[in-house]
């Protein structure tokens, strides 16, 4: 039988399988931690910072990404403290500012309580979540894609910026890209970006009804088991 460890997430005692991440465990036990760069079966790198949680170490809560945090015996995790909510909202605001035209980004931002974005919109076509890079390199071992450049110039690219002949044409990079989710209906032209009304109405539902998950459509592209349960 596989070994399990005892951990506490938001006061709930959980016997989690060893070697899994806190995020995977939480999702499996129906505790919803917003996430963007995580995809089931693809190694995690903690790129989007949305899945941050507080890990209490010797009485001190430390903020860390739950997708890269492995479960350990006696761990105490808080996923929804005021501090986490504030930080997560801020991360989500920056993501929306970076890519306001992405439905996936908007959905997840709304779940984090974002209604208004104080930052300048950048209209980037990539939030550097690295899903495509990881699925290409780690899952399919094609190694056709990677992060190139550093700092502001960091971007996803093929070697020499052209598709190499060893690309397996599996299109996984396209399938997993959160930017490829259909944009929200409504005026999303450049310069008129805002969190759309549809997403906002979902948010109000989540506030009124206890324990209801915002139907963020993450289930479609993000493997959010919560949505499957809701159905």
């Amino acid at each position: 039988m596989e070994k399990r460890v005892n951990i506490t997430i938001d006061g709930v005692h959980i016997r989690a399988p060893e070697h899994t991440s806190v995020l995977d465990t939480a999702i499996e036990f129906g505790i919803c931690i917003p996430h963007l760069c995580h995809y089931p079966g693809v190694p995690d790198i903690g790129a989007c910072r949305l899945c941050i949680v507080e890990n209490v170490v010797r009485g001190k809560p430390r903020v860390t990404t739950s997708c890269t945090l492995k479960v350990r015996e006696g761990m105490e995790i808080h996923t929804n403290t005021d501090r986490i909510q504030q930080l997560r909202k801020n991360v989500a605001e920056m993501l929306v500012a970076e890519a306001p035209n992405s439905k996936a980004v908007q959905d997840v931002a709304v779940r984090c309580g974002v209604t208004d974005v104080p930052y300048k919109f950048h209209n980037e076509e990539c939030v550097l979540c690295g899903r495509c890079v990881r699925v290409c390199n780690d899952v399919w071992q094609a190694k056709a894609l990677g992060f190139v450049g550093r700092g502001r110039d960091r971007h996803v690219a093929f070697p020499f910026e052209k598709k190499p002949d060893f690309c397996k044409h599996c299109e996984s990079c396209v399938d997993l890209c959160p930017m490829n989710r259909t944009p929200c209906p409504g005026p999303m032209k450049k310069g008129e970006e805002f969190v759309c009304g549809q997403c906002e109405s979902q948010l109000s539902m989540a506030e009124d009804v206890d324990d209801s998950c915002v139907w963020c459509r993450l289930g479609d592209g993000f493997g959010c088991t919560r949505k499957v349960q809701a159905q």
Binding site: F147, R150, F158, F160
Partner: peptide
């Protein structure tokens, strides 16, 4: 040169994208 980078990747058995990334970094 591009050719040199391809050859390096081949002989060192390092993925081409890794060599390209290092050269860009």
């Amino acid at each position: 040169p591009e050719e040199a980078i391809r050859r390096v990747a081949e002989r060192l058995d390092v993925p081409l994208i890794e060599v390209y990334r290092v050269a860009n970094f």
